[in-house]
Design a protein around this nucleic acid. Structure first.
Lengths: 138, 138
DNA sequence: AATAAATATTTAGCAGGCTAAGTAAATACT
DNA sequence: AGTATTTACTTAGCCTGCTAAATATTTATT
């Protein structure tokens, strides 16, 4: 049965990737997961926490905590929305902007390592499979 | 560039899977990750914590914590090794044995959902790619 | 035999990520 | 207008998972 293995493989690959690039992130004073949040802000600054929970596919409380620690570390800052008093908008600081390049490089390096030995066609194929699986989980 | 997407896809798929079957695990009074530890004990009971860190590919302190909470919940128990006073051996209780079937079913269900729409050949192919990637990360 | 080094586990402390329950502001309803 | 509901976020508490430092036991060295 190949099927059971696939779930396991993905689990292992994912956790192993996390482990490996967490070391690199630590040098930027970042923790695994925080890179993803910052990434969302690169592509769309001035975003509400609610939007972040959707983009990151996680719970509101998780965003609260993550933003709070990222704020404490100086990567982002928050401002209350002037119109709607409930919502809190998140912005990148210069420090948060500055880690964009290094993080992108860390990711690229990790990807290269991951895909070594796979031809362009196979990568294309793999990508299609992954897209399908991602859709299946929605 | 397909390459960057692949890393992201795997990340998303993995976390989405976690989210989804964590609900099912909760009904067994289990937390995501604990299923993996129990799984190792099904295939090889009477195992040291050091062996668990290798099998789970995690840090010793993580095993300590996980075993401790699983012990508190009655899924496993520990005994000191009579020969080597440093090592601690972990065993399944009946409760820990009893969740084997339900957990396997949860996994199977998750896999089915994940792989829906992929032919047998494609699953085979995907599995090969994943094996390669797993090897690449070692 | 006495000291040094290695091994197995633990503890403390941090962060992501979750649930459940709470607060505050905005919208809907009567 | 006044109450009820919804929405955005927060807090408390738990667990995985990590690092760094501590403890205890075993093995290696001299």
């Amino acid at each position: 049965m190949v099927d059971n293995e696939i779930r396991e493989h993905i689990d292992k690959i994912s956790s192993q990737m996390r482990r490996q690039y967490s070391e690199a992130l630590r040098e930027l004073d970042l923790h695994v997961g925080q890179d993803n949040l910052l990434c969302k802000l690169w592509t769309a600054d001035d975003i509400t926490q609610m939007q972040l929970t959707e983009l990151l596919n996680c719970e509101p409380s998780t965003v609260t905590n993550m933003v709070k620690t990222l704020e404490k570390k100086g990567f982002v800052y928050r401002k209350k929305d002037p119109v709607d008093g409930r919502v809190s908008r998140v912005y990148l600081t210069e420090k948060g902007l500055a880690v964009r390049e290094p993080i992108t490089q860390i990711w690229r390096k990790q990807q290269d390592k991951l895909l070594k030995g796979l031809t362009a066609e196979n990568r294309e194929l793999l990508n299609k499979f992954l897209q399908q699986m991602e859709k299946n989980l929605r």
